[in-house]
Design a protein around this nucleic acid. Structure first.
Lengths: 204, 204
DNA sequence: TCGAAATCGGACCGTTGGTCCGCTACTGTA
DNA sequence: TACAGTAGCGGACCAACGGTCCGATTTCGA
C-alpha cells in the first residue's frame, strides 16, 4: 500500500469518526461531507472502502476491536457473570458510539446481522447460555439478548438514567441466563437449581 | 373527503401493499413505483400521506388493527399466557408482513420507537410483566421482548423452521415473565401467585 | 533522475424523495 | 341540468445522494 494511500485511509476514517460522533442522525453524514472533512476526493472514499456500508463497517470494526479483545469469556467466572459483563460492555459501547452504531445497524447494507462482528458476539453468548441453562433455545436467546441492546433502542432510552438501563439489562440477563438474583450475582451458581422438567438439559 | 380522493387513497394503499408484499427489500419499493401501480400521480401520494414514512405507517396501521383488537389481554388467563399470546401473534404478524414491517422499523422516519403502535404494545407488555414479577424492570423488559421480535431479526431467522423460532420466543417469555415451564403453560393461574412484597419482587 | 504504475479528485450520472402549479372534474346550489 | 367554486389531480421539476470514470498527479524502485 502506497504511502499516500495509507495516509488518506487514515484521514478518511478519522474524518468519518468525527462527523458521526457529532451527528444525531447518521443519515445526516453524507459521503461528500466525509470526503470534504478529510480533504480528499470522493473517488478515494469509494476506491478504498467500496461503498458507504464498507466505510461504516471499517470504522466500526476499528472501534470495536478493543472491546472484542477485552471481552474474551473468563473461565474463572460463571456464565451469568460473563454474559452480564459482555452485555454491559456492549451497552456502554453502543451508548458511546450511538450514531455510528445506528449507521451500522440500520443501513450498513440492510440488516445488522450480515456484519462480521455480529456472529462473533452471538456465538459467544449462545455458548455461555448453553452452558448455563442448556442448549435448548440458546441460539435464539442469544439473538434476543443482543436485540435488547440494539443501538436504536439504546438511543430511545436516552433520557433514562444510565443506571436504570444498566439495571434493566442486568435483570434481563439474570432472567434469561440463570436463576435470578437481580444483582451481579454471587460467584457460586449452585444457589438456585433450575427447574428440571424433561427436555431441558443442564450443565453438569 | 371527496369521492375521488377516497378512491385514490384506497388505490394507493392497495398498490403499496401489493408491492411491499412482493418485495424482498422494502427499499426496492419506490414512491414512483407505488404511484404507477396505483395509476395515480406522485403528487397524490405525498398530498395524502405526507411522506414515505407516512404512507408506510398508514398501511401498517391498517393491517395491524386487526391484531390490536384481537389481542386485548384476557383477564381469565395468567400474565405468562397473555404475554406469550401477544408475542406469538406479533411474531406471526411480522413474519407475514416481512417487507412492510422492515420498512416501518428501519426507515419509517428513523427508529421503530417513534411509531404510534409501539407504545401500545409496550405499555401492555410492561403492565403484564409488572403483574407477573413486579414493577422492578418491567419497562425495560417489555422493550427487550419487543426487540426480540423485530422484523429484521425475524427475517434473519428465515431459514429456521417456524416452530423453532416460536419455541425460542416462548422460552424467552417464560424466562422473563414468570417461572419457566418452557411450554405454553397450563390454564390455571393459581400456579403463579403474584409477588406482593415491595422492593425486590420475585415469584413466591 | 526517470518512467511506469498506483492513486487521486472532482465532474459527472442515475435514482430517489419531495415540491409546485396549471389543469381537471367533483359537488352543492339554483 | 347548468354552473361556478374549489378540492383534488398529475407529472414536470428540483436538490441531494450514492456511486462511477478518467485525465492529472504522486509515489517509488531502478
Amino acid at each position: 500500500m502506497r504511502a499516500d494511500a495509507e495516509r488518506n485511509r487514515e484521514a478518511v476514517l478519522r474524518a468519518a469518526g468525527r462527523l458521526f460522533d457529532a451527528a444525531d442522525d447518521p443519515e445526516q453524514v453524507s459521503m461528500d461531507a466525509i470526503a470534504a472533512e478529510a480533504r480528499v476526493g470522493k473517488g478515494t472514499l469509494f476506491r478504498r472502502f467500496g461503498d458507504r456500508a464498507g466505510l461504516i463497517r471499517a470504522l466500526y470494526e476499528e472501534r470495536a476491536e478493543r472491546l472484542r479483545t477485552s471481552l474474551a469469556p473468563d473461565p474463572t467466572r460463571s456464565p451469568l457473570e460473563n454474559v452480564t459483563l459482555l452485555m454491559t460492555a456492549t451497552l456502554r459501547f453502543k451508548t458511546e458510539n450511538r450514531a455510528l452504531a445506528r449507521a451500522l445497524e440500520n443501513q450498513g447494507g440492510g440488516s445488522p446481522y450480515t456484519n462480521a462482528g455480529y456472529d462473533h458476539w452471538h456465538r459467544q453468548l449462545a455458548e455461555l447460555i448453553a452452558e448455563a441453562r442448556g442448549p435448548e433455545a440458546a441460539d435464539f436467546l442469544a439473538h434476543a439478548l443482543l436485540a435488547a441492546v440494539r443501538s436504536d433502542l439504546v438511543a430511545h432510552l436516552d433520557d433514562w438514567p444510565a443506571e436504570r438501563v444498566r439495571a434493566g439489562v442486568a435483570t434481563l440477563v439474570a432472567s434469561v441466563v440463570g436463576q435470578p438474583t437481580a444483582r451481579p450475582a454471587p460467584p457460586d451458581t449452585a444457589d438456585h437449581p433450575q427447574p428440571e422438567d424433561a427436555g431441558t438439559p443442564r450443565h453438569a
